[in-house]
Amino acid sequence: MATRVSAGRVSAYFIAIVVAVIFLAPLVVATLTAFKSPREITQVLSFPTQLYLDNFVVAANQMGRSFLNSLAITIPAVIFSVVLGAIGGYPLAYMRGGSSRWIYFFLLTGMLVPFQIVQIPLFIFIRTIGLYDTIPGMWLTHTAYSVPFCTFFMRNFFASVPRSMYEAALIEGCGPFGYFWRLLLPASTSGLSALAIIQSRYIWNDLLFGITLTNGDEAQPATVAIAGFVSGVQVQYGPLMAATLVSVVPVMAAYLIFQKSFVRGLLGGAGK
């Protein structure tokens, strides 16, 4: 028994390390490139001879205010979309009967819509309500287009919260609203956190809505600046990789912050 367990552990370490190395290798190339001068970039797998920091200067100049715009867009949009996902997912997880299922499927069809096809009606709508080229316009858009996914995600998460908790709460005189706010949300931090991480990544990396709905320094997100490095005919690999390294930081920060709530046994006593 003991040997089998340790054999299992050895193979676990083996797999974990091999996958980690494979995952890191392309990132090493990217990082090396970020520190190379244009002269050295022609040799993809070489090491930079000195730390060439100009790429970061170029990246910073190019991204400029757009980095702050991205933060101003992403943070509230993540909060709104996750909260809205919880709000939509809650009744869908607890309501009984056909109507909830119909609404659920109705919302899910939204996940199948390729975003490229919504852009013209979206552009017209956002301009009509006066939110073109504004950060609140981006909040609204991201929140709205996150409805199907966030609802789907939270509905499934809430479905894993034992129903006995709900019944008990109702019997104790806690209304459906109170249950949602005081019991269900606190008990669902790991789901909310996972969703917040995914949403941070999705909204932070959005390019399509950023290009369609903003047009200048006021609201343009960083992804537009990053995509600019592969614009026209030329490709600026050094600054592109430098900008990428910088742009990964906020999403990683969100990941590190939110994943703290992935704590085992959060629902401990209420197990099935």
């Binding site: 995509a227 600019g228 614009s231 026209g232 600026q236």
Partner: peptide
């Protein structure tokens, strides 16, 4: 007055 272009970086910029 906006001037739209796709020259975003480097010498093109």
């Amino acid at each position: 007055a906006e001037v739209w272009n796709y020259y975003a970086a480097g010498s093109e910029l």
